[in-house]
Simulated scan of single mutants.
Amino acid sequence: MSSLLTGRRGKKRAASPSTIPAHPQRAAEGAGGPVSANPWRTDGTAPAGPDPAFPADDAPPPQVVEWSQGSALASKAWTALLVLALVSGPVALVWTALRPEGGPVAAGTVSADQGAAAAAAERAVELTETWLRADRDDQALVASLTEASISTLPATGLTIRDSSVASVTAGDPSPTGTTWMVTVGVDVAEPAPGTTVPVRGESGDDSEASEPVLVWVRRYFQVPVLIQRPADEDEPFAVAALALPAPVPGPSGADSPGLDYPRTIPITSDAGESVAAFLGALVAGDGEITRYLRPGTAIQPVTPAPYTAVSVTSIGGSHEISDHPSDGDGTHALVTAELTRPDGEKTTAQYVLTLVARDGRWEVSGLDQTVRTEIPVAGSGDSGTE
């Protein structure tokens, strides 16, 4: 088997977005030239020079011609360099004195923008949490976090949890600063759908009212926050929330593409057993993890181990593999596993790995940082990547 060169029969494939730079194929592959038998090289480089497996056709040996004028040319070159150095010295001094001031460094600008975004997000989250929890006695507390006027607050605040920033968007800079629009996501305890909320009677006595069944609902709120840069870089940003939180729709769901792991790898195969042993060492503390890693791969186990056992239920591969692989054969793998907690309860998790063969056995060469997805090929109606 030719490892990564095995494609789907009868289909055009686009370049995979999950191709790992550490395992590139030879540059000749894209040009239609000969392909290295080992595209999963561990040094991250294509072989230098011709591949010995594909010798050139009767290429004549290179001819070496001696040249007797080398020392004379070297002497002339040193003389020219010395004259150039003497002439360029005054020119460099003039350029240093007359050159225009350099513009701001891009990295510094990016860092400042990140700091402003973080300051805006922090104020938006703080205001949103305080506003949701507030009752009518907390009017001064809410007012301390925003420039907006507070007219009405409820008799009882809400119960919330798990606040996070969904998005941060910068507006156009102005003389007063830059306004950032921050969207905050919060879990809010609300009555379950179909249940009624007891209404407080005219006398205010609700002792006989039953408590509603509450469920957690994810809600989103938008807050405009003004950020002013300080004159002194060592000073903090000036921050002001310009309005109260506004409930807005949450992010819409994306059309998820299918995952591109079309080959089935049996969990009882050599590769399947290597994957199960690796995951057991990774999250269950079962054995030494380096036994299952390709040389040069550094993956540390999770400590202390959060699970007591791992059971692999399925493995999908990007390429076909065998129990008798050649060195350098490889595949990306999507592994579904059942993890057992210390209390005996089980949960399902999925890992994306890269497997590469060496000395007749399968080793893990990395936890993939991307997942392979099927991508439609323009004008073909086909999908998928190799």
Rank of each mutant, 00 (worst) to 15 (best):
S3E: 07
L4Y: 06
T6N: 15
G7A: 11
G7I: 03
G7N: 09
K11W: 15
R13L: 15
R13F: 13
T19I: 08
P21F: 07
Q25D: 12
A27G: 11
A28M: 10
G32M: 03
G33L: 07
A37L: 03
P39Y: 00
G44R: 03
A48K: 13
D57S: 00
D57C: 07
A59G: 04
A59P: 00
P62D: 05
V64A: 00
L73Y: 11
A80P: 04
L82P: 06
V83S: 11
L86S: 14
V87H: 07
P90H: 10
V94E: 10
T96M: 13
A97V: 04
G103Q: 10
A106Y: 13
V110S: 14
A112M: 09
D113L: 14
Q114C: 11
A116V: 05
A117N: 14
A119E: 09
A119Y: 05
R123K: 12
T128N: 06
E129V: 00
T130K: 09
T130M: 12
R133A: 00
A134F: 03
D138V: 02
Q139P: 03
L141S: 00
S144E: 08
S144R: 04
E147L: 11
T152R: 14
L153C: 09
A155F: 09
G157C: 10
S164W: 12
V165D: 10
S167C: 06
G171W: 07
G171C: 06
P173I: 00
M181T: 06
E190V: 09
A192M: 04
A192R: 11
T195V: 01
P198E: 02
E202G: 13
E202N: 12
S207F: 02
W216E: 15
V217G: 09
R218E: 15
R219K: 15
R219H: 13
F221L: 10
F221S: 05
V223L: 07
D234G: 15
E235T: 04
P236C: 07
F237K: 06
F237V: 05
A238W: 10
A240G: 06
L242D: 12
P245Q: 05
A246Y: 09
V248C: 07
D255N: 15
P257D: 08
Y261G: 02
T264A: 14
S269L: 06
D270S: 15
D270T: 08
A271N: 00
E273L: 11
F278P: 03
F278S: 03
L279W: 01
A281H: 04
A281T: 01
V283N: 05
R294P: 00
R294H: 14
G296V: 00
G296M: 02
A298D: 11
Q300A: 13
V302Y: 08
A309V: 04
S311N: 13
G316V: 03
S318V: 00
E320L: 03
S322P: 02
S326P: 01
T331I: 01
P342D: 00
D343Q: 08
E345M: 12
E345G: 13
K346L: 09
A349F: 10
A349M: 11
Q350W: 06
Y351D: 09
L353A: 03
T354H: 06
L355E: 02
R358T: 05
D359I: 04
G360Y: 01
V364D: 02
G366H: 01
Q369R: 07
V371A: 14
A378H: 10
A378M: 07
G379E: 06
S380H: 12
S380A: 11
G381T: 00
G384H: 02
T385R: 03
